[in-house]
Design a protein around this nucleic acid. Structure first.
Lengths: 198, 198
DNA sequence: AAAATACTTGACTGATTAGTCTACATGGGC
DNA sequence: GCCCATGTAGACTAATCAGTCAAGTATTTT
């Protein structure tokens, strides 16, 4: 039931927003009653923290696979961006909208008002950046890009990517995400190969 | 009074969020009563549309100056990013938080639920991109960058910038914005000059 | 000065909100 | 058969929400 509640919460907050997702609505979707909700969580804020952590745990294995060191570093990004694109396109079929990234949507919404949720978003954000950072470091070591500060480069790329996801949500346009692969190459400073000419 | 209401609304929504900004709170800050509010606007949604348009009108002259064709094209970006950085740092002094861009925060929050506000954000977003687009086209014409599709490049840069602003909001860190100037150069594909070496 | 328009006031409604509380069910260990 | 821990049920509160409305005051028009 705990899982049903966190799943329901994340679904609703992702599709709509933190503010418009009521505890009643979460309970209804999870098939739970108010009493159960407050048995497991002492507030909506605390549930949100749990929901975000649960979502992270659900995705972690997948992220590990996408960013496996066995994959050539720049290809990891392509695979990741493709994966997110496909997932968001799939969700769009279900709910009619490109939903972007819940970390950014929820984080941006509550950052000035709920330090617990804000810190959780921040923490998970940092974990995800580590995948980028390590891929960038590998690419640099292989001479594919020049990135003397992989951490800064990773943060920059991650921010750019999330901006694109947010724009895709606002404009409800999945194409922006598809186009991001090229933008990522610019941000990374990928050295041109002759395959690029046309 | 209409102006006082839209100003109050934008301030509150920018600092907090659309959802947590109540009509009562807007009225209180504006020194207006409920009746006046609903005399001018028929809903909170409609007020938000008016507030966003008013904000645009307030900023337009400034944007025109920053992106004046008399300024070298790449310098326009530097000036703009500096301006936003300084403005957000100033607001941070007042309210303790880096607030990011209200278009993104509000847009991301309401995009799946309020088509009126969503369309307004979209429209203003497009107007702002035009400044980028024209600067990019000029830079391309002067051989400073290679950007055969200035519109796409402008959208990409705008998205990256907004992602950075959102991240700055979530992490309450203004430095991310300062660092963006270099990222922008990567996205734009600015050709290296010898001044860069060190 | 009358009339019409523009705007303000604040009490009101009914719905919804997060969160509480007590009573109840279930199932396992003894 | 009984205890106790783990959960469930759902009515309840008090606050807050967006929005209404009828009566009032200014301001402008005629």
């Amino acid at each position: 039931m705990k899982k049903r509640l966190t799943d329901a919460a994340l679904d609703l907050m992702w599709e709509n927003s933190y503010g418009t997702t009521s505890v009643d609505a979460i309970c209804e979707r999870a098939g739970a009653k108010k009493g159960s909700f407050y048995y497991f969580f002492k507030s909506k804020s605390e549930l949100t923290v749990a929901a975000l952590e649960a979502e992270w745990n659900k995705n972690k294995a997948n992220m590990d696979a996408l960013f496996s060191p066995t994959v050539p570093p720049l290809e990891r990004f392509d695979r990741y961006f493709d994966y997110v694109h496909d997932r968001l396109a799939e969700l769009q079929e279900e709910c009619g909208s490109i939903l972007g990234c819940p970390l950014l949507s929820i984080g941006s919404e509550v950052s000035t008002q709920d330090q617990g949720v804000r810190a959780t978003v921040d923490r998970i954000w940092d974990r995800k950046i580590k995948y980028f950072e390590s891929a960038i470091r590998d690419a640099h070591a292989q001479g594919l890009i020049v990135a003397p500060d992989p951490e800064a480069k990773a943060r920059a790329l991650f921010a750019c990517y999330h901006g694109t996801l947010a724009q895709a949500r606002i404009q409800n346009d999945v194409e922006l995400i598809r186009d991001f692969k090229e933008v990522a190459r610019d941000v990374l400073g990928v050295k041109q190969t002759d395959a690029v000419s046309s």
